[in-house]
Simulated assay, not measured.
Amino acid sequence: MKTRKSSIIAVTASLFFFGSYAQGTSAILKSDLGITKEQSTEKVHNPLEVVAQFDDIRPGNVAVSQEGRVFATIHPLGDPKEQLVEIIKGRAVPYPSADLQKNGKPASSKTFDTPLGIVVDKKNKLWMIDMGLQLGRTRLYDFDLKKNKITTTIEFDQKIAPKGSFIQDLAVDESRGWVYLADISNPGIIALDLTTKKARRFSGDHALQLEDVDMVINGKVINFGGKPARVGINPITLSNDRETIFFGAMNGTKWYQVPAKLFREGADDKTIGKAIVKFGDKPLSDGVATDQNGSHYITNLTGFGISKLDASGSLQDFISDPKLNWPDNLALSKDGYLYISVNQLYTTPAFTGSSDTGRPPFFIYRIKL
C-alpha cells in the first residue's frame, strides 16, 4: 500500500470519494453529539472477539450468512490484490475463487474492480456492489452461497451510475425484488427493480447532502486536500419489513427515513423529497446495521465506538473502545452477534495527503448483543 502505484490509485479513488465536499467553513461537532456516559443507559458487558486479523490489507465491509459464514471486501483505497474474501479459521480466502480477483492486474470485465458494499439478505444470498473506479462501470453481483458462484451480474447504465460515481453501500428487499444503493460522490439513492433490471436515481435533496461538520479524531480534524473532509449520504439500510429506507450523511448528525414504496411505485423526486423525515440523531458514521426490533447500530467514527439508535429515536452509546479505530462497517448475525470491520481508514494517503500512517494489524471483531 506504500508503493507509488498504490498511492496514486488511493488518491484517485479518494477524488471520487469526496468529490466536491471539501467546501464551506468548519463547524466542529462537540462531544460526539453530546452523548455522555450519564445519558447512556445501556451497558455492554460482552468483550470484543477477534474474527480475523489483517497484517497488510484493510477490510472494507463485512457480511454474515445464516450459517455464520463471514465475508469481507478488501478496501480499494489500498489497491489490494484480492477484492472479496471469506474468513475461514481466521484467514482471508479469495471468494468465490482466486480467478475473479484482480491479483495486481488492471481491472477487467472478467474480474472484480473496486467493490466495497456487501450484505447477506434474508434468503441467504450474498450481494456485492462493485464501484468500478478503474473501469468506470458500476456492477452489482449476487452469489449463491450453496454453489459458491455468481448468480447474477447487473451493470448500471451510465446515466444512473456515470463514471466518477462512488456507489459504496446497499440494502436489499429480497421479498419484493428491489435493491437500494447510496452514491456519495454525487449524493443520491439508486433504486433497482430486480425484475425489470431498471433503475432510477433520486438526487438533489438536502437530506442526501453533507453537513458542515468536522470529523475530529484524537483531537485532530481529518482533512482531504488540505481541507476538512466532507461526505454525503452514507450509510443506507432498510427496516426489517423492508418498507422504510433509512439513511444519513457520513458528515452528518441526522438519520432520515422515507417510505420505500415511493420508489417502487415510481414517485417523482419532489414527492419523495417531501416524504423524507428525520428519524433521530446520529454520530459521524460509515456503517450501519438494523435489527428486527427497529434499532440501528451506527458506527461512531469520532468516538471509537458504536452508537445505538432505538426504535423510539433515542440515541445511546453502545460500545466505546480504542480498538474500534475507524469502525467502517457492521453486520448482524442470526445467532445474535454484531460484526465490526475496523481499518484505520483515515490514516491512508487519501486522507493524510502523504504516506500511510496506519499501524497494522486491522481487524474484524464481533460482540454478542
Rank of each mutant, 00 (worst) to 15 (best):
K254C: 01
T153H: 09
L324R: 10
I306R: 00
V221F: 04
V172G: 04
M250W: 01
D55L: 07
R264L: 12
G177T: 09
T237F: 11
Y297N: 00
V62P: 02
D193N: 15
M128W: 05
R359F: 03
G248T: 10
R139N: 03
E265N: 13
D55V: 04
S109H: 12
I150A: 11
I364E: 02
L133T: 14
Y346A: 10
K149W: 07
F362K: 01
F351H: 01
P115L: 01
H75C: 02
G219R: 03
R69Y: 06
G19N: 14
K2G: 15
S14Y: 13
D99A: 15
K2D: 12
Y180Q: 09
S320M: 08
L145H: 01
S6E: 13
A229S: 12
T347N: 10
D173S: 07
N234V: 08
D183V: 01
K149R: 14
A207G: 05
D99N: 12
D212Y: 13
G78T: 14
S354K: 13
M215I: 13
V179W: 03
S285P: 04
I154H: 10
D99C: 11
A10N: 15
K282H: 06
D56H: 12
S108M: 07
I319S: 08
A311S: 14
T271A: 13
L369K: 15
